[in-house]
């Protein structure tokens, strides 16, 4: 997109429409009245500020700030606590929209590559859909080793006391590394998910085409 078209798109519906078509619950973005209760309700926003809190993201979408929104780290801060949802005077499903924007940014490759929660989110989904059930050990190790082996060992060592505590309490089984819990009908699950992805892809493409 050239700089000129970017200017021309400001405060136009283009990006809003894109979000409505591609993002789960994206058609709610236009309903925001900028009261800010979501931004004020977000726990991570208070512990360590989001770059753009939800209500501001919504305004940015309406103002056509496509790049800034999709490359933002903000929505990846969502802890899914649902505070914003229950307080929103417009009943906007903000949590889902945050997830949805993040998913879309990730899908089209705009999401910040180094964002830890993005990495973990992907890892988690792959982990749980692989066998149908979560393998907590592999999940943790996957996270620790995301930045390479050396960093992984460091991360692992930092978390050593936590892991030992859990192992002692019988809540982390080292043997999970070699198999662990799984569903019987893994094949069926994979086929089912593949189909779901396919349907969703077709639907979103159709929306994009208008």
């Amino acid at each position: 997109m050239s700089a000129n078209t970017a200017v021309a798109d400001k405060y136009r519906n283009n990006f809003l429409k894109e979000i409505e078509e591609q993002v789960e619950m994206g058609d709610w973005v236009k309903m925001c009245m900028q009261c800010g209760v979501c931004s004020g309700s977000c726990p991570t926003n208070f512990q360590s500020a989001w770059e753009h809190p939800p209500q501001e993201l919504f305004m940015m979408i309406r103002a056509g700030k496509r790049e800034e929104v999709l490359t933002s780290t903000s929505m990846w801060n969502c802890t899914s606590c649902y505070n914003c949802i229950v307080r929103c005077p417009r009943k906007i499903p903000i949590t889902h929209i945050m997830h949805g924007i993040a998913e879309y940014a990730h899908r089209i490759g705009k999401a910040p590559k180094m964002q830890a929660t993005r990495f973990f989110s992907v890892l988690f989904w792959k982990n749980c859909t692989n066998t149908g059930r979560v393998n907590e050990l592999k999940l943790s190790l996957g996270l620790y080793f995301k930045d390479g082996f050396v960093q992984g060992v460091k991360n692992g060592l930092a978390m050593q006391s936590v892991a030992i505590g859990l192992i002692k309490a019988g809540r982390l089984n080292p043997l999970e590394l070699f198999g662990g819990h799984k569903c019987k009908d893994q094949k069926g699950i994979q086929a089912m998910l593949a189909k779901a992805y396919e349907i969703e892809r077709v639907r979103k493409a159709a929306k994009m085409a208008g």
Binding site: Q34, C35, G36, V37, C38, S39, G40, S41, N45, F46, A49, H52, P53, Q55, E56, N83, R87, P89
Partner: peptide, 29 residues
């Protein structure tokens, strides 16, 4: 310009307002 998100109470019984000033995105407690 902000809808206060929540109110808590501090040890002296003062109500504390939590929220974000949407003009300029300033968090307040």
């Amino acid at each position: 310009k902000s809808k206060v998100a929540k109110i808590t109470e501090d040890e002296s019984g003062n109500p504390v307002c939590w929220g974000v000033d949407t003009e300029g995105y300033k968090r307040y407690t």
